[in-house]
Computed example of a mutant assay.
Amino acid sequence: MFELAALAYLIDYLFGEFPCKHPVQFMGDFINAFERRFYRDRIFPGALLVLSLLMLTWLISISLIMLCGLLPDSVSLLIQALLASTGLAMNMLHSSVASVLTAHDPKQAVAMLVSRDTQAMNATDVYKAAIETWAENLSDGVIAPLFYLLLFGLPGIAVYKAINTMDSMIAYKTPRYFYFGKSAAIVDDIANYLPARLTALLITVLADDKIRALHCLWRDGHKLESPNAGYPIAAMAGALAVALGGDAVYHGQLKAKPMLGDSIRPLNRAALVAALAFTPRIHRTILGFLALSILLNF
């Protein structure tokens, strides 16, 4: 699995998204079609959606592996790596968050990244939202899919992306999705439990001030309502010496959220630049780990 993961990560790192319909879009189409036909704000229909999409994703990925098995090993590895790379989002994540730095309207740029309302945001709120998105999605978009790719190969990363897609589409505590999206939210929480904490530890290890990052992680990581999101955000807050979290508006409703980290440095453009400066360190760490693992398995 290490060769597959290394090649998939390199493909995403070098090329990013390919100009074709992404597998996640097909998953989204399935979710929308299921919702149009079977929606009821009850737990059972939502659970049925989760089971059906996960089963369909697993069957398709297993079928693709079987087809690849008919090809020479090197070609099979390359095709599986190309498919697996679509589940990794380091290139796209970095570019999307970095766009806030260059956008004519940073508020509009950050609106493409977050589910919270952005109309009333000031500059501090914009940079805070961008940094939180960067930290949280390092887990969802990079570490978690890589983790499941290493454990279970192509089916692992495919099933994880299905879980993550359902979470992003229906796992909201709104009148429409409170019960329908509950199963998707629970499965996502379970799937991200270890990756979120691994991401927080990675940020801590790569931070210039590891002690402060570890302190904030230990003190604040558990404070958010989500059992996972707070850990990488708290670690990033400590690494940057800024305060993240705090109240935000979602779907027109003000939601009280605790602060993570300490407001030692200003939460401004420089803080976002510093957060994005983790990218080359993460690349080196991941590629170094995968290369060492390949060598040790020879």
Results as ranks from 00 to 15, higher is better:
181 G>V: 01
275 A>R: 04
193 Y>S: 09
155 P>L: 06
137 N>W: 03
298 F>Q: 12
69 G>V: 09
275 A>H: 02
189 D>W: 05
100 V>W: 04
3 E>Q: 14
232 P>C: 11
271 A>P: 04
62 I>M: 11
40 R>V: 01
265 R>F: 12
236 M>N: 00
250 Y>P: 04
246 G>R: 07
222 H>E: 08
207 A>M: 07
21 K>D: 10
115 S>M: 08
297 N>I: 05
201 L>H: 10
136 E>D: 06
59 L>Y: 05
161 K>I: 01
70 L>F: 13
14 L>H: 10
27 M>P: 01
208 D>W: 12
19 P>N: 12
256 A>C: 07
121 M>K: 01
191 A>L: 02
286 I>T: 07
49 L>D: 00
281 R>F: 11
85 S>V: 05
217 L>S: 02
50 V>T: 13
264 I>M: 12
222 H>P: 02
180 F>K: 00
276 L>M: 08
212 R>P: 00
133 T>P: 02
12 D>A: 07
129 A>I: 10
239 A>N: 06
196 A>C: 11
150 L>R: 08
266 P>G: 11
162 A>C: 09
247 D>M: 12
188 D>C: 08
36 R>D: 13
189 D>F: 04
141 G>F: 11
273 V>D: 07
100 V>R: 02
223 K>L: 15
144 A>T: 07
193 Y>N: 04
62 I>E: 14
173 K>R: 15
168 S>F: 01
221 G>S: 06
43 I>Q: 02
144 A>W: 04
10 L>K: 12
215 H>A: 13
137 N>A: 10
159 V>N: 00
29 D>T: 11
145 P>V: 13
174 T>E: 02
246 G>T: 11
127 Y>T: 04
178 F>L: 12
191 A>V: 01
192 N>R: 00
82 L>A: 15
207 A>P: 02
88 L>N: 05
164 N>T: 08
89 A>V: 11
135 A>C: 09
56 L>R: 02
112 M>P: 00
216 C>M: 13
121 M>L: 14
132 E>K: 03
36 R>F: 11
17 E>K: 14
188 D>V: 05
75 V>D: 03
218 W>M: 12
106 P>V: 11
212 R>M: 13
169 M>P: 01
198 L>R: 03
194 L>F: 15
298 F>A: 10
67 L>R: 06
191 A>K: 00
61 S>T: 03
17 E>L: 10
59 L>A: 15
173 K>C: 01
273 V>F: 06
162 A>H: 06
54 L>I: 10
118 T>K: 08
105 D>E: 14
69 G>T: 08
83 L>A: 15
